[in-house]
Design a protein around this nucleic acid. Structure first.
Lengths: 219, 219
DNA sequence: GTGTATATCTCGGGG
DNA sequence: CCCCGAGGTATACAC
């Protein structure tokens, strides 16, 4: 990783056109070739950047970064305060716990949390407008579509509504019911779900984890 | 801006739990207090981060970053290879051109791209759930609401559907039609739009720019 | 402050 | 490769 602190101007031409007036900034060049221009604030997002794969050409105080898609980033260095490089090596990567995919896994393993005697038919059941998280059947054989969210907001209810509309057209699924499952279901989402005959369930993540087998734990 | 290259482990506890095993990484601390942990690859997004406002406490080789929302980032330094600081100053900021606002401008200037003889009534026409991008009328006097996107996805169709439902309640707009305009309209969005009687149009941005007057350009 | 809409979103998974 | 959905989305702007 190369780190350059310099007074510079930057121009990006590609999906949009963007220009940075002259100022002192950090230019970060990673081992995979990606380039990011950082100011001293504004969260982690750089002011300007170019992702790999790309080509970096240095010509005196002018850097040209181009990629196969035809985008270009031009950096003009007016004054360089530091220019250092470090070997970081391969990163072992981030281990995450507590995201929607994990919730979905846990619920797929034990759908009874969502209602009496629910049995899983399949996860990511496909429709022509995208896959529904869980397709189940209850004891009476009625199909049940489940949308799982970490935070249950109005968008999720809309999403489940679209799926139900599509699934209802399949004769084998006629009469399908909807369940909206999330750790927290916001008031607006509750109202919308109820007005559409969709049942909503708040899930206790820690309780679900408690019944989980040890080797499923990530760390 | 402080830049530290170090062998470290990192743990985040907050909206989820995430762990980084020991490896050499860049730790960037910006003037506003935000902290980002970068590996030597993988676009501009850091592996882990904590945005301002937060509190950084250094205790030997252990850094604790906490924020008012109760999230925490713990960095354990095992070996420090570099630790430098630089004064960057206030950044004048980015000048952008070519985003959705620009597309909307161009279409407002020439709505005929969207359909025969469309005439603009007004941009950002207000409804009680937000403004619709363009309100037009066609030759027959029928109102037409236009939602403009750079990339036409399912969310945009939902958005336009909500506006149409509101606008239909206005007697002066009864019978209003919807047009979903984007540089690219994704297949799922096409299906949903058609099933709701909304016409979709793909826009050629470069062709629109070609007929644009020079003083509309930003730089 | 909450809600809504945008983003050069980034990132990962599946066909 | 594209399509699609999730994100600790972040960010700006309106109410």
């Amino acid at each position: 990783m190369r780190l350059v602190i310099a007074r510079c101007t930057v121009d990006y031409q590609g999906r949009l056109a963007a220009h940075l007036p002259e100022a002192v900034r950090l230019i970060m060049v990673k081992a995979d070739g990606c380039v990011a221009i950082h100011a001293d604030g504004g969260a982690y997002k750089p002011l300007n950047w170019m992702n790999a794969p790309n080509t970096l050409r240095e010509d005196g105080g002018t850097w040209s970064v181009t990629n196969p898609a035809g985008e270009s980033l031009t950096i003009t260095l007016h004054e360089v305060f530091e220019d250092s490089a470090h070997e970081l090596g391969q990163d072992p990567g981030l281990v995450k716990d507590g995201v929607e995919a994990h919730l979905q896994e846990l619920l797929a393993a034990d759908p009874s949390t969502l209602g009496d005697d629910l049995e899983l038919v399949r996860r990511e059941y496909p429709t022509d407008i995208g896959p529904v998280d869980l397709l189940c059947r209850d004891r009476s054989g009625t199909a049940v579509a489940v949308e799982v969210k970490r935070r249950g907001e109005i968008d999720g209810v809309e999403q489940l509504t679209r799926y139900l509309e599509r699934l209802e057209r399949d004769p084998a699924l006629r009469g399908i019911q909807g369940v909206f499952a999330a750790q927290v279901v916001k008031p607006q989402a509750r109202v919308l779900a109820e007005s559409r005959g969709i049942r909503w369930v708040e899930i206790d993540y820690d309780a679900l984890r408690g019944i989980e087998v040890p080797q499923m734990r990530l760390f």
